[in-house]
């Protein structure tokens, strides 16, 4: 059984200053790294003789507008070790001006569509992706709908005032 403490210590030993913001929300080890380190990190966790964190559960994006310093977008990776039943969450923050992150589809085949989905909804560009096109929305769409600035309802509607409903 791996403990959050021991895994975190090993990762710090290996990556030093490139990993930070360690947290444990609801017992799930969460850490932040840089985009340069994301592929080495996943490979390290996958090939490590003790950890064997070799299953990519999920990739998704989150948008935090108006953050300072400018790190508006976050790519979240959830990984799982079937052998030790250990889960870990890795975050990479990106600035809106430079939304590039290397693709991990070389490491995990499942990342292909997850990254396409993240690109589709947030406009995060995964460098080196074999086919970075929209997946759930239509090709002609010229915006990325999960960004916070795109309202859910038609903003020009006059008959429905959100303030009246406490929204």
């Amino acid at each position: 059984m791996l403990s959050n403490q021991s895994v975190a210590e090993e990762i710090v030993k290996k990556f030093g200053d490139d990993v930070y913001d360690f947290e444990e929300p609801f017992g799930l080890l969460t850490l932040t790294t840089t985009r340069e380190q994301i592929i080495p990190m996943l490979e390290y966790l996958k090939n490590h003789s003790d950890f064997k964190i070799g299953f990519l559960t999920d990739i998704t994006g989150v948008h935090f507008p108006d953050t300072t310093p400018a790190t508006e977008y976050c790519v979240v990776y959830h990984l799982h070790s079937f052998i030790h039943n250990f889960r870990i969450r890795i975050k990479v923050f990106l600035a809106e001006a430079d939304l590039h992150i290397p693709t991990v589809s070389e490491v995990y085949a499942s990342a292909n569509w997850m990254e396409r989905e993240t690109f589709d909804f947030f406009g995060i560009i995964f460098d080196g992706h074999p086919n970075l096109t929209r997946i759930l929305n239509m090709e002609e769409m010229d915006y990325h709908p999960m960004r916070r600035e795109y309202p859910l309802e038609d903003p020009t509607r006059q008959d429905k005032i959100d303030a009246l409903f406490g929204r």
Binding site: R134, L136, M138, M146, Y150, L152
Partner: peptide
């Protein structure tokens, strides 16, 4: 090709 019945659940859920 997927996405024919995409209904933007994640976006709707934010509201």
């Amino acid at each position: 090709t997927v996405g024919y019945i995409h209904r933007a659940f994640e976006k709707i859920a934010e509201r």
